[in-house]
Design a protein around this nucleic acid. Structure first.
Lengths: 346, 346
DNA sequence: TTGTAAGCGTTATCAA
DNA sequence: TTGATAACGCTTACAA
């Protein structure tokens, strides 16, 4: 393996000079710089990262932890975060906890499981001297898993951190719920059913709050009977639609596209015309939403934006342009995607 | 930062003893081992990876390069590969080239673009001293991008490497095409249309070969007129279905689920009963395939298996159980997923 | 069973 | 503008 020493010898200079040149320090004559760079290129010399990091004690690296890369929401955030880091000339190191892969969905209520995976990863990131961490949650919720004594600046993406030391960038679910309702109302709907997510889920609660604000604004009473709590899965959308349709709703808003798919199943089974007799509205803008028939009107998650903003925020902190203390949770709005599943009611 | 030296001092032993204990060497008395481990735990000591890697010159790390994490096929392979590495106690380092993100789909025919992204990453992996590399292609094809002089053992997943130095693990597309055809034939179909992928694509060619073998076995002549070359996108499925349906086919096999979605669009537009008047068969088993109506019968890609086997193969090579020289491409079969889009023809 | 000392490749300091 | 030297934290011969 070729080293600075050898480069130095080949150029008849000292190792320090080579190092100075390689690190772009100014106190070097143009002639030697040229000579050395030449040789470096010729030999294909690669600095030894370990040696240099050990000596410098810093690495211009950002650690990105994904709770589960397999989640549909994760990769867009990840790629956007990486793009941002790249722009600012930080390298990234990706750690994948594979929580779903290992524990299906029994982990996010069980801090122990999460801790057991997370702590070693945090240690590893500390020991490779990353400057900061972006934690990409695989499941939206309030998060407590980051230890109080973790020293590195850390941004939580997609989940809400309650710890002030860890700012978060999350969906604006309240606005999302509000927008969905407003849209349905603008299309003439008044009796609206809701297929919500799991009841104690953060998305569920926030979206419901927004939805109630919209109803209140329009002086439409909120009828709890018209909210069915599903489990985010297709089947529960079917069951919810069944129950709500019996209550004469003209539209159903499903808190994700998969449950909307279940509502489609029900409508199809009963021969109910989607977008005519019954309007259906989704959430997430998953790929399935454009393949459902008729195309599902839904709300696009700003995943790339969340990822990008998380990285931006972290870099701002690392470079002293922003203080971690006065960083409130950032809420990023979704975007309505209109297709054909919501009819105009006269 | 706490170091071996300090641990040593606190335990009244020498740094080498601490190091020996930490590295599980046998020549240490039970008493001191216990004492040292105690202190290590108390202090939360973390060995400095840079120092130790620099000294040991090896890292028990495998580099995983993804051409694009955003591809639906990539994460399952990646997670399975990581699981395998974890089982064998290798750490992984993930590099994401983000080719689609950067270049849309103008890159896989342009070696220059790929090289410009890949070479620095390869260098970086060499300089962090990974033992070997798993290269996860984002696009199935024959691959030439790995430089002749790259020293590390490398497995190519999902794409076929023509270089003998880089074994690959790929889909068994020939068998896939064969199986699809055999299935349609077993359901009584004789006039079968094919919506293929791009013509010069590897998947397209192999699947077509398999399909022709099946036809030959059944003494059904292959009619090139009944093959429409699409571009893997939904729209081309629509156009293909239009053309083929005019030729009185009773079934159409689409080489991916998205084009099958396009074929559904056409059938719906014309009021053709899918699974009755016209059978449609897909490929990939993407999530959309179960949300299409009726459910799309399709062929599940063995992505996890490809990822896992790639990692296994690499580890076998690293640990001397297998020689890189006599490693032929591994072809992994798909699995037929029967839903409701293919009818039984009497 | 334990300790001493050298060295991994780089960079920072300070002197030339 | 350049070079000698020490130091980063760890591991490993080899000596005790």
């Amino acid at each position: 393996m070729i080293t600075v020493k050898e480069i130095a010898k080949m150029c008849d200079v000292s190792p320090s000079t080579v190092s100075n040149i390689l690190n772009g320090r100014p106190n070097v004559s143009e002639a030697t710089r040229k000579r050395v760079l030449e040789v470096v290129k010729e030999t294909g010399y690669q600095p030894n990262i370990f040696a240099s990091s050990m000596r410098k004690q810093i690495t211009r690296t950002i650690g990105i932890i994904a709770e589960d890369l397999g989640q549909f929401s994760t990769t867009p955030m990840l790629e956007a975060a990486m793009a941002c880091c790249e722009e600012h000339n930080y390298r990234t190191i990706i750690m994948n906890l594979r929580m779903y892969d290992k524990w299906a969905d029994t982990w996010y209520h069980d801090e122990r499981k999460l801790q057991s995976m997370l702590v070693p990863v945090l240690n590893e990131l500390e020991s490779v001297k990353v400057g900061g961490v972006i934690y990409i949650a695989g499941h939206g919720r309030v998060i407590h898993c980051l230890p109080e004594d973790f020293a590195l600046p850390t941004i939580v993406a997609y989940a809400l951190s309650e710890n002030e030391r860890y700012p978060s960038v999350v969906l604006d679910d309240e606005k999302g719920g509000y927008d969905m309702m407003k849209y349905l109302i603008s299309r003439g709907h008044r009796r609206i059913g809701i297929i919500a997510g799991v009841m104690d889920n953060l998305h569920t609660q926030e979206r419901l709050a927004g939805c109630q604000r919209a109803l209140f604004e329009e002086s439409i009473p909120y009828n709890p009977e018209c909210t069915y709590y599903g489990d985010w899965e297709r089947k529960s959308g079917f069951l919810g639609a069944k129950k709500l349709y019996a209550q004469d709703v003209t539209a159903i808003w499903c808190m994700n596209d998969l449950m909307a798919g279940g509502a489609y199943d029900y409508a199809r089974e009963k021969g109910i015309g989607i977008g005519r007799e019954l309007s259906i509205l989704g959430y997430d803008n998953r790929q399935v939403s454009e393949y459902l028939y008729p195309g599902l009107t839904t709300n696009e998650l700003p995943l790339k934006s969340i990822g990008f903003q998380s990285a931006e925020m972290l870099i701002d902190i690392l470079e002293g342009r922003r203080d971690i203390a006065d960083t409130k949770p950032v809420k990023v709005p979704c975007k309505l995607i209109v297709r054909d599943s919501v009819g105009l009611l006269c």
